[in-house]
Design a protein around this nucleic acid. Structure first.
Length: 283
DNA sequence: CTTCTTGTTACTGA
DNA sequence: ATCAGTAACAAGAA
């Protein structure tokens, strides 16, 4: 599941590779994935001059007016292939991680230097959308604070958590509060902070709130350093898996012993999501 | 066959 | 107005 660390990894990978390459052709194999109807025509002969991110949303800045927004949702991938990476003598090269395009390649960008960018999505939840500046502003207005930016201060966190009567898991998943946290990192942050996912936000002590604040920053940054978490589908801009899975302490560990105390990790459902915790370490 | 998976949003109700 | 809670979406794995 691409969350902030995974999306950030893809963003930096792609920014390094495809800036200012002229787009020769865009092949849309599954039209419902893109918007608006003139998606391919808008991009043809255009180029990307910057790649930025807000929460889990990737923003490609177009040379000729506008932006392309890409959301990977659960199983989306953006994989770049240089010319010599996917064909050798006309044959698909093996051992590169994945052969592309595959049956989940719904949009293919072809650049003038014969490199390609593939948008793959098994569940077809993701999307690519061209917007203008006004539309972009409207979309970004709904996003909460970026947890790794300087604007996310302890004071701001204390203010955000005042008078909230929802549980802390739902609060961490709420993109209008803090952007970029999904199911994996919500569970990991709460375990590291010794707080149960079902705790109501306004009953948390200052000490607990501070622990959550610090762990959001620590864990997201460490996950970026390890290029994200790959369970099934997530890959970086090269089609390679992230390695943060080895640092997960509770997510998908139900039935296994807690790494801190040895108690069995529990799994329940909170706000409709699989939620993992140690009933001994978290209160 | 049923159940499970998650990011986001529409919708409902307080 | 603001906040909270839930269903729905999609499609494949088990």
């Amino acid at each position: 599941m691409p969350e902030l660390p995974e999306v950030e990894t893809v963003r930096t990978d792609l920014k390094r590779k495809l800036l200012n390459k002229r787009i020769k052709e865009v092949e849309v194999r599954l039209p419902k994935i893109v918007r608006p109807k003139n998606f391919a025509a808008t991009l043809t002969q255009n180029s990307f001059v910057d790649v930025t991110r807000r929460g889990k949303l990737i923003i490609f800045h177009l040379k000729k007016k506008g932006f392309m927004l890409v959301h990977l949702k659960m199983t989306g991938q953006l994989v770049f292939r240089d010319h010599d990476q996917f064909t050798v003598g006309g044959h698909s090269q093996k051992g590169m991680g994945m052969d592309l395009p595959n049956k989940y390649s719904h949009v293919i960008f072809k650049f003038e230097d014969e490199s390609q960018l593939f948008f793959n999505d098994l569940r077809q939840f993701g999307y690519l959308k061209i917007v203008n500046q006004t539309e972009l502003n409207k979309v970004l207005a709904k996003f909460g604070v970026e947890p790794l930016e300087p604007e996310f201060t302890p004071e701001k966190w204390q203010k955000l958590t005042e008078n909230r009567r929802t549980n802390i898991k739902a609060f961490l998943l709420n993109q209008a509060v803090v952007t970029g946290i999904g199911n994996i990192y919500a569970d990991e942050v709460l375990f590291a902070s010794h707080v149960l996912p079902t705790r109501t936000v306004n009953t948390l002590t200052t000490r607990e709130k501070t622990a959550i604040y610090k762990n959001i920053r620590l864990i997201l940054q460490k996950a970026i350093d390890h290029r994200g978490t790959t369970f099934n589908d997530y890959v970086d801009g090269d089609g390679k898996k992230g390695s943060f899975i080895q640092f997960l302490k509770v997510f998908h560990k139900n039935g296994e012993p807690c790494p801190d105390c040895g108690a069995i990790i529990q799994k329940t459902r909170v706000v409709g999501r699989g939620t993992h915790f140690c009933k001994n370490c978290q209160v």
